[in-house]
Design a protein around this nucleic acid. Structure first.
Lengths: 148, 148
DNA sequence: GTGCCACTTCAAGTCAGCTTGAGGTCAAGC
DNA sequence: GCTTGACCTCAAGCTGACTTGAAGTGGCAC
């Protein structure tokens, strides 16, 4: 069994984040040592799986749903494929945006707005032709508070 | 000159968003027709440029800074290159995550956790070896309120 | 001239994913 | 047995980009 401090040390998650995950039903503590939460060793992998999900753009709700659906560590394969498809779209979009930025940075036109190429991509962005980004995941905060 | 309703119609932005942008100094109205704000036609391109910036992951503060720096429609080329570099990193990361999801969805191991391949990527995510995503941009809200 | 309704202002609310603060508890070391 | 300090709970706060609600205004069609 692992003390919460051991879990924070090994995963980089803060204690408050772990408490929050428990509250949300994403993880479970198996007991207490005095006040202190105690976890099974498998919590480490569970948290890694959660981190992967977050990195892929799943919300905590979606992740807990997946855990509920499967009962265990397993997840819905169709959902994973769907998310991978999403990511592929996003990657394409980001690539287009990146290229637009590069172009903007290098375009010799005196004002970007005079460059037809630039106007094209910028207009696309303005019309929402660039589909929505929904990604907002896995941000290991700069402050690495391991202890409370 | 364009009425605010014309601007919302042509850009897909809500009137409240436009007011918010004006408050933040990102755009300027040139007058009023009664109460109603009036904009120069160039507002359309300006908004498109803002949308591109948001899509690239710039915050509104960063975008307004760029406008201030350059005075006009122009922007700091170094910043654009830096952001393009960021995007390249992100694209690589997303590609890795996407591959991990695909693998997870297709891996024949009875439980994902038994697949060494899966454990490897999941462990990487858990340790924060997957660097932070900071992208959260351009989300044309589903509700397409054109009018207030 | 009057009714309508899209606009206006301003303050407050929303969402996610935590963090922070106040005030309390308890295992361990001295 | 007493201090210490890392943990606990619960409620409130934070960030960013807006949205929402209440209350007011004014141009335009009739």
């Amino acid at each position: 069994m692992l003390d919460i401090s051991e879990v924070t040390r090994r995963t980089g998650q803060t204690a408050s984040a772990l408490r929050y995950y428990e509250e949300r039903g994403l993880i479970a503590s198996v007991g207490r040592n005095g006040l202190r939460r105690t976890f099974e060793p498998s919590i480490i992998e569970r948290l890694a799986l959660i981190a992967l999900g977050r990195a892929a753009g799943f919300s905590l709700s979606e992740i807990s749903e997946m855990f509920r659906d499967s009962g265990g560590m397993d997840v819905d394969r169709a959902k994973l494929h769907a998310k991978a498809d999403d990511l592929e779209q996003q990657i394409k979009r980001l690539t287009r945006i990146k290229d637009a930025l590069r172009h903007t940075a290098e375009c010799p036109a005196p004002s970007h707005m005079e460059c037809p190429n630039f106007r094209r991509v910028v207009t696309a962005a303005g019309r929402g032709l660039i589909p929505p980004l929904e990604l907002d995941a896995l941000r290991p905060k700069s402050k690495k508070r391991i202890k409370d």
